[in-house]
Simulated scan of single mutants.
Amino acid sequence: MTPDGKVIDLASGKATHRSLTQGEPTAVALSHDGERLAAGDDSGWVTLWDRRTWRRLGELPICSAVASDGDDSEGVSAMAFSHDGRTLAVGTDDGRVQLWDVTTGLAIGAALYSSGGPVMALAFRKDDRTLYVSSRHVPLERYEIAPDRVAFEVCRRTGSGLSLSEWRTYVRNVPYTASC
């Protein structure tokens, strides 16, 4: 994708003008199988596309999902698809990272917070159980995102599982389960 909005097919060299986002494009990601393209913009939205047919698959309101504390989120700054293509990680200019279920279009849990400012790059480990985040002031942070690892870490750090209230705060969209 060029800065003026043209999409170039690298195999054929053909360029077409296509509006991939609602606002000014700021980040793109291609799924590992080449089937889906995610395009993020400066207003905090991500549009998902079928890369072969250029059919719009849906839009993700990153700005409202990550701004759960009432602050206005900034634009999308980085994105990455998991290797299995089912999860999209989206980073913002204000240092937040939200995981999305690509099939349902729903946010997965609460946003992660980078301690280093604006998110510059995202990558999943090959087994999709770990997310790496690079930000302006911290070159590399590692987040365990596999449910069994997250539960283990919570139990290890707190000595007990999450209460129902804590679960509702930190593990949204998932029915409560005793974690330890």
Rank of each mutant, 00 (worst) to 15 (best):
T26D: 06
G109V: 09
S68F: 02
R129L: 05
G40E: 03
L57R: 15
D50Q: 04
L20C: 01
G159Q: 06
H32I: 01
A121I: 01
P61S: 06
A27H: 07
R86L: 07
Q22W: 11
D41M: 10
R149H: 15
R51I: 12
D69Q: 10
L30K: 05
V119Q: 01
A123S: 15
R125N: 03
G161P: 03
E74T: 14
D72C: 11
W49Y: 05
A110G: 11
T47L: 09
I62S: 13
A78C: 06
F124I: 11
D33V: 06
A146Q: 12
L112K: 02
H83I: 14
Q98C: 10
G109H: 12
S43Y: 09
W54S: 12
A123P: 04
S68T: 04
L48R: 09
V150D: 05
I108Q: 08
M79T: 01
T158F: 15
R125G: 02
G161D: 00
G95P: 02
R55V: 13
A27Y: 04
D128C: 04
A89G: 08
R52I: 12
T21A: 07
A39I: 07
T103E: 15
T158P: 02
G58I: 11
T130C: 00
G109K: 13
A123R: 14
R52Q: 14
R125A: 10
V102W: 00
R96G: 03
K126F: 14
H137G: 01
A151S: 03
H32D: 06
S19I: 07
S134C: 00
M79S: 01
A121T: 00
T130L: 08
A65E: 07
T104Y: 03
V150I: 14
E74N: 14
P139K: 05
G23M: 11
R149L: 15
P139V: 03
R18F: 02
D69R: 13
G44R: 04
D101K: 02
H32S: 10
I145Q: 05
T130Q: 11
R36I: 11
T104F: 00
L60F: 08
T26E: 06
A151T: 05
I108W: 06
D69W: 11
A78E: 11
T103P: 12
D84N: 15
Y132I: 02
W45G: 10
S82F: 14
R55K: 15
S73G: 08
D69H: 11
A121N: 05
S114D: 01
C63E: 14
S77T: 08
L140T: 09
V150G: 04
P61F: 02
M120Q: 04
E141K: 05
G105D: 02
D84E: 14
T103R: 15
T87F: 04
R96Q: 05
T53Y: 05
E24Q: 13
R142S: 12
V28M: 12
L30C: 03
P61T: 05
I145D: 07
D94E: 15
G44Q: 00
M79E: 01
